[in-house]
């Protein structure tokens, strides 16, 4: 009963967040840039590709190009989400909406939940539209139907939730731009670590590690633990994209990165609610 009463304000705040963000010039510019990119990618599907002197069949090309596009869209929308999220609280404060909402019988947790849902819904919708354009291009023009592409897109939305919550939390603790850079830094560090991890599994790297005088095992264990616990943004995206190419997933298994991000969302979400509860409303 209590939850039923709490829902309408959350939905309204989410709706206002979505509407207000779409009005921003920065959002419109980013949307146009992304749409242009998608239409430019169309050309990549029409080329003839050879690997080791052998022509690749159309389906392989479509899947490979779609996978690259999938990653580029995912990363681009994450960047856009972080850019939009970093000013959500500040904009609401400056526009007087924060004090307007919180002077009504609406609790702070409802306000924050509404903001998170609004930003998340906007970015998921944005990413889904872009992925759907690729899906339609491959389905209609190239006759390669990949329903798993859209499922992968939905899985990737977990990353966007992480970005929204992390940027909102950090924007309460530090300047907006620093909050944005920190979250992007987390993503880039994860990507680099994934690269190093993939390299370390190569035969050459294994041979180097077994040489006398190589790094002690304890050092490696610390780094491995950090790598294991680090937010797996690129890992989650990779595990989602593994659906597209039906490739075996290397690393921790396809589920771990998603669970890792989900846990981070819960922990950072709890911290965000706690921090905003202590915030002075101007």
């Amino acid at each position: 009963m209590k939850m039923k009463k709490a829902l309408p304000p959350i939905i309204r705040i989410a709706k206002y967040t979505l509407i207000d963000e779409v009005r921003q010039k920065s959002f419109i510019i980013m949307f146009v840039i992304c749409a242009i990119f998608i239409f430019l990618v169309r050309g990549c599907y029409q080329g003839n590709y050879t690997v080791n002197g052998q022509f690749l069949d159309a389906a392989t090309v479509v899947r490979a190009v779609s996978k690259v596009t999938f990653h580029v869209i995912g990363a681009g929308v994450m960047l856009m989400t972080a850019l939009l999220s970093m000013r959500v609280f500040r904009r609401d404060r400056d526009d007087g909406m924060q004090s307007c909402i919180l002077s009504k019988p609406i609790a702070r947790w409802q306000y924050v939940t509404g903001k998170i849902i609004g930003m998340w819904a906007l970015s998921v919708l944005f990413m889904f539209i872009l992925h759907s354009i690729v899906f339609l291009i491959t389905s209609i023009n190239l006759q390669v139907v990949m329903p798993e592409y859209l499922i992968a897109s939905m899985l990737c939305s977990l990353n966007l939730l992480f970005v929204v919550i992390a940027v909102l939390l950090l924007s309460l603790l530090m300047p907006d731009i620093v909050a944005f850079l920190c979250v992007m830094g987390i993503g880039v560090a994860g990507l680099v670590a994934d690269g190093i991890s993939a390299l370390s599994q190569s035969q050459m790297a294994q041979a180097m590690l077994q040489q006398p005088g190589a790094h002690p095992t304890s050092d490696l264990t610390v780094w491995k633990s950090i790598y294991y616990l680090w937010p797996k943004l690129s890992g989650a995206q990779q595990s989602a994209s593994s659906l597209i190419s039906s490739e075996a997933f290397h690393g921790f298994g396809p589920i771990y990165p998603l669970i890792n991000i989900l846990l981070y969302c819960l922990i950072l979400g709890a911290l965000l609610f706690r921090r905003f509860g202590k915030e002075d409303i101007v």
């Binding site: 207000d20 526009d95 007087g96 307007c100 909402i101």
Partner: peptide
């Protein structure tokens, strides 16, 4: 409540602002 330094989102009209306040009160 009416605050001392009142701000209203500049992209809204006065009517839309009143409507939002009414919606928030269900």
């Amino acid at each position: 409540y009416l605050s001392e330094n009142l701000h209203i989102p500049p992209y809204l009209s006065g009517w839309q602002y009143l409507q939002r306040c009414a919606e928030l009160l269900e």
